[in-house]
């Protein structure tokens, strides 16, 4: 269950504590540019990088990532081309794919998740996050992930009750994705008060916890880490840079630096002897 040493993702978070986990949508605006952006994030100090494989009905996404997914789909991004891109990337940061369950089911025949996982492993991905797959429905995918040595990361929501919390924490691999607030993804100007409560509830579980949904600035990262998180997950703020910056490569690299430095500021000072 908590075989931390087997998990490349868990090891990475522990070794680079506090970790920065960066999300961008693959293929926004093209897979060629995604390659440059991933390399920029890697240089800027992102410890793990999540790549969104676009699905036409992204129900967990706010306007920013919905728009990125639309741009990617308009550019013709397919799972095949996505895996080819990933296979060619040489980043220090391990890579995860974030996508919706139907994309995973349709990669092979008969709505079976195994072919997707097999291809993901072959391409060098270390983990999978599926926002519309709760623990109850995760049996077949988890089995495939275990067989291929991939981490299936589960999300803990502010509404998750204690009973569900146990079963999620038992199943999640690599880290627990702590959803900072109710709602969809999207950059916010502050840190949700729910974050502190969520982290306090998770304190007793040994697996690393990373907080996402709304994190956009170094100061947020500092606050979240000081509240006990092992990592921060930043998505929409990076996607905004891709959409709006004149030089996204430079902007992403420096944003990653800012966020990583912020996270490090949040580490409590060791007590004076």
């Amino acid at each position: 269950m908590n075989a931390g040493t087997d998990s490349e993702i868990e090891r990475t978070i522990r070794e680079n504590h506090p970790a920065l986990i960066a999300y961008i949508t693959a293929g926004d605006p093209s897979l060629e540019e995604t390659r440059e952006y991933v390399e920029a994030l890697d240089r800027g100090g992102a410890d793990l990088i999540e790549l969104g494989l676009p699905f036409s009905e992204p129900i967990a996404e706010g306007p920013t990532i919905q728009a990125a997914i639309n741009r990617s789909l308009e550019a013709g991004t397919t799972p095949g081309a996505f895996f080819d891109l990933v296979a060619g990337l040489e980043t220090e940061a391990p890579l995860l794919v974030m996508t919706y369950y139907n994309m995973i089911l349709q990669h092979g025949p008969d709505a079976d998740p195994e072919p997707f996982v097999s291809r993901a492993a072959e391409a060098g991905l270390a983990g999978i996050i599926v926002p519309d797959l709760p623990a109850e429905e995760s049996g077949p995918l988890r089995k495939a992930c275990e067989a291929h040595g991939l981490d299936l990361v589960f999300i803990v929501a502010p509404t998750t009750d204690d009973e569900r919390l146990d079963s999620i924490m038992e199943r999640t691999a690599g880290f627990a994705y702590v959803q900072a607030r109710l709602g969809t993804t999207g950059a916010r100007a502050d840190v949700s008060g729910a974050t502190h409560d969520s982290l306090a509830r998770l304190d007793e579980y040994p697996i690393p916890k990373a907080v996402g949904f709304g994190v956009s600035e170094g100061d947020h990262a500092a606050e979240i880490v000081s509240a006990g998180a092992d990592g921060v997950i930043v998505g929409s703020a990076l996607v905004d840079l891709i959409a709006e910056s004149e030089d996204p490569v430079a902007a992403l690299e420096s944003k990653a630096r800012e966020l990583k430095a912020g996270a490090e500021r949040g580490v409590p000072e060791p007590e004076q002897p």
Binding site: I59, A60, Y101, P131, D132, L133, P134, A135, E136, E137, F154, I155, V156, A157, P158, T159, T160, D161, R164, I168, Q179, L182
Partner: peptide, 13 residues
């Protein structure tokens, strides 16, 4: 059938 929804909605279901 089933319940393929984000975790946040599971308690509501």
């Amino acid at each position: 059938g089933g319940q393929y929804v984000p975790e946040a909605l599971m308690p509501a279901l």
